[in-house]
Amino acid sequence: MSLFSQQNKEVFTGPLNLNNPVVAQVLGICSALAVTSQLEPAIVMGLSVTVITAFANVIISLLRKTIPNRIRIIVQLVVVATLVTIVSQVLKAFAYDVSVQLSVYVGLIITNCILMGRLEAFAMMNGPWESFLDGVGSGLGYAWILVVVGFVRELLGSASLFGYEIPVLTDCDFFHNGMMTMPAMALIICGCVIWAHRSINKVD
């Protein structure tokens, strides 16, 4: 099978839209809601999850024939925990402000259901290259939901994007809606994203 066959393309694009991990499969909700009050942490979190899913998928896929079935969950957790430790140390070294904002949610990538779901459902049965594509696809599918929710919340909550204030909007009172930065609105906006996604795709 060639590297960029039709089947591999579907593996990559499926999670971006129809099989989106957040809105269709309901995985990884916890962190998706908690880090989206601003755009920058949302993007960093999305990229971290993408990197970790991709590499965890590759490693588990390479090991899949040697892991005894009974202890596979522990092996998967250890691989994921190692990758998360590396990412967390890298963030602390090169993007300290963002890593403070993300606080415990970087560590919580270990218990992110997207990871365990993809490892169990895909990497245990497929080769390394397909698993890599699947991991990147799932991670980006998760990331774009974070970006949408983060965009709406930062724009309406503090009239800025990436921390830069938007001159036209700062005078308008509506764009300083403190409610938007509260945890409650993350849930409601995410509910609306799911609503839109389902009506567009006509999912039952």
Binding site: L187, I188, G191, W195
Partner: peptide, 20 residues
Amino acid sequence: PLQGLGITFIVVGLMSMAFM
């Protein structure tokens, strides 16, 4: 389209507002 997951999210959002 709002049935199931969508409305559950909104309900949790409202409960969260109450807990605020």
